[in-house]
Amino acid sequence: MNEMDSWVAEVTAELGLTDVTVPSKEILDVARDVAHNVLRPGAPVSAYILGLAVAAGADPAEAAAKISALALQRSTSDS
């Protein structure tokens, strides 16, 4: 188990979320895309919005892909 997995396990246990799967890679990809193509403070906010979407029933990978696509569109439209 790497440090990220360990941290996620510790946090989810503390919050009583032991039966959830955390899509760490997708969350980190969204944060990277938003931070690099939109603005840095948008990264954690976008990750939170991703969490809200998943809590409302969205597929994590699909929601993450949509957010990343928006961030990448923003980058190309600013060129």
Rank of each mutant, 00 (worst) to 15 (best):
A64I: 06
Y48K: 14
L39Y: 02
A64M: 05
A53K: 10
L28Y: 07
I49W: 08
R74Y: 01
L52Q: 15
A63L: 10
A63I: 02
I49D: 12
T21C: 14
V38W: 00
V34G: 02
A56F: 11
L50I: 07
K66N: 08
V30D: 04
V45F: 14
L28S: 13
T12R: 11
A64L: 03
L39F: 04
A63F: 02
P44S: 09
D5K: 13
P23M: 05
P23I: 01
I27G: 12
A65E: 09
M1C: 13
S46T: 15
I67H: 11
V11R: 14
D33G: 11
V30S: 09
V20H: 07
A13I: 11
T76S: 08
G51S: 12
A47L: 11
G42D: 10
A35I: 03
A55H: 02
A43W: 05
W7D: 09
V11F: 00
T21E: 12
D5E: 15
S68V: 06
H36S: 07
I49K: 14
I49C: 08
W7S: 08
V38H: 05
A43G: 09
S79M: 08
E62V: 04
A61S: 07
A35E: 04
P41M: 06
T21V: 14
A53H: 14
A47W: 01
V45S: 14
Y48A: 12
T18I: 03
A43S: 14
V45G: 10
L39K: 09
N2S: 11
S46L: 11
M4C: 14
A43L: 10
G57L: 12
Q73Y: 03
A9I: 03
A63K: 13
I67F: 01
W7C: 13
R40K: 15
N2Y: 01
P60G: 07
V11I: 13
A63S: 06
P41E: 09
G16T: 05
D29S: 03
D29G: 05
R32C: 05
P60E: 04
T76P: 00
Q73P: 00
T21A: 15
I27F: 06
L15N: 13
I67M: 07
R32N: 15
A47T: 03
G51A: 04
S46C: 09
A47N: 05
D59W: 01
G57K: 15
K25P: 06
A47I: 05
A55T: 05
P23R: 04
G51R: 10
T21W: 07
I27Y: 07
T18M: 13
G16M: 03
I27P: 11
K66G: 04
R40W: 04
R32I: 03
A53Q: 07
A63R: 07
E62N: 10
P60F: 00
S79T: 02
G16I: 05
E10S: 15
A65Q: 10
T76K: 08
S75K: 03
D29K: 12
E26Y: 02
T76A: 15
D33R: 13
L15D: 06
L52E: 13
V20W: 03
E26Q: 12
R74E: 01
I49S: 11
Q73M: 10
D78L: 14
V22R: 01
A63C: 12
A65M: 05
L17I: 02
A56V: 00
A61F: 08
I27D: 08
V54R: 06
T76W: 00
A53Y: 02
H36C: 08
N37M: 11
L28G: 13
Y48D: 03
G16A: 06
L39W: 02
T18N: 13
